[in-house]
C-alpha cells in the first residue's frame, strides 16, 4: 500500500473518465434488462423458433428455378434500374445541395445550415417510409420507388460530398482566382479535380446500398423484385420465395464485386 504514496501510480484514465464509463456500462445493462423484461415476446415462440425456421427452410427446398425466367428476371432488372436511376437522380440533386452546405463554396452560414437541414431530413426518413409517401403520391410502381431511393440518398451523398469539398486544398482555387477565372471555372477546374475521386467513390458506395434497398421497396408497392417476393409469400409459394431470395443474394454480391473492382481501377 505504501508505494502509492511514494511513486506516482500510473493510471490510464482519470477518476471522472472511469466514473463516466462505469455509468455508461450501468446504463447499458439497465437498458437491456428493462427491454428484456418489458418486450412482449411470447417465450414459447422463442423456444420453438429454430424448429419453425427449419420447417420454413425445408418448405423452400428445392428452389423453383423455372420461375426465374418467367417473372423474377424482369423484376430483377427493374430493381437494378430503380437503384441506378435513383442514384443518378440523387447525385444530381445532392451536388447543388452539397455545394450549398460547404462553407468554402457558399460562405453564408444560414445557407449552409439550411442545406444541412435538408440533408438531415433526407437521411432521417427511412427508404421504406419515403416509398410509402411516394406510392401515395405517384401511385404504385417503379416511379415511386426511384424517387424514394433518390430522396433517401440525397442526405448521404450530399453530406459526404460537402465534407469532401470542404477538405479541398485552396491552392489551385486561389491560383485560378488570381488569373481572374469566373466562378464556374473555379468549381470545374479548381474543386472538381480534387473532389472527383471522392465523388465517384461516394456515388458507387451509395449505388451498392441502393441495390440492397431497392429490393425491399416492392413490399410497399414501389416496384421491383420486392413486389414479386411479396406476392409469392402471400400465396405461400415457398420454393418461388427461395428462387427470389437466391436471385437477390447473387445480385447484391455481384454489385459489391463490381463496386470494389471499379474502385480499385478508378481510385
Amino acid at each position: 500500500m505504501s508505494h502509492t504514496n511514494d511513486a506516482p501510480r500510473w493510471q490510464r484514465f482519470t477518476r471522472a473518465q472511469r466514473l463516466a464509463r462505469f455509468a455508461v456500462y450501468l446504463a447499458m445493462v439497465m437498458a437491456v434488462v428493462w427491454s428484456v423484461q418489458n418486450v412482449r415476446v411470447i417465450p414459447e415462440f422463442l423456444y420453438d423458433a429454430h424448429t419453425q425456421m427449419a420447417d420454413l427452410l425445408r418448405r423452400m427446398w428445392p428452389p423453383d428455378m423455372a420461375y426465374y425466367p418467367a417473372t423474377v428476371h424482369g423484376a430483377l432488372i427493374e430493381t437494378l434500374h430503380i437503384a441506378t436511376l435513383g442514384t443518378i437522380l440523387a447525385v444530381s440533386m445532392a451536388v447543388p445541395i452539397g455545394l450549398m452546405a460547404a462553407n468554402n463554396i457558399v460562405p453564408i452560414r444560414i445557407v449552409n445550415e439550411f442545406a444541412k437541414l435538408i440533408l438531415v431530413a433526407s437521411r432521417s426518413v427511412n427508404s421504406l417510409v419515403w416509398a410509402l409517401l411516394f406510392v401515395a403520391i405517384f401511385g404504385p410502381g417503379a416511379l415511386a420507388g426511384t424517387i424514394a431511393i433518390a430522396f433517401r440518398s440525397i442526405g448521404f451523398v450530399g453530406k459526404l460530398l460537402a465534407e469532401a469539398v470542404e477538405e479541398a486544398s485552396t491552392g489551385p482555387v486561389e491560383a485560378l482566382r488570381a488569373v481572374g477565372a469566373p466562378w464556374p471555372a473555379l468549381l470545374l477546374k479548381g474543386y472538381w479535380p480534387q473532389v472527383q475521386p471522392a465523388f465517384w467513390s461516394i456515388a458507387l458506395f451509395r449505388w451498392d446500398i441502393n441495390v440492397r434497398e431497392s429490393a425491399v421497396l416492392g413490399l410497399v408497392g414501389a416496384g421491383g423484385i420486392g413486389l414479386v417476393l411479396d406476392s409469392a409469400m402471400n400465396f405461400f409459394q415457398w420454393t418461388r420465395v427461395a428462387t427470389i431470395l437466391i436471385a437477390i443474394f447473387i445480385v447484391v454480391i455481384l454489385a459489391e464485386i463490381v463496386v470494389t473492382q471499379i474502385r480499385k481501377r478508378l481510385i
Partner: peptide, 23 residues
C-alpha cells in the same frame, strides 16, 4: 447481404408476428 426488412419478413413468416421477429 439481405436487407433487414427482408430478413424480418422471413422471421415473421417462420415464427409469427411480433417483436421477436424484429429482434
Amino acid at each position: 447481404s439481405f436487407h433487414p426488412i427482408i430478413v424480418a419478413i422471413i422471421f415473421v413468416k417462420a415464427i409469427g408476428f411480433g417483436p421477436l421477429a424484429g429482434i
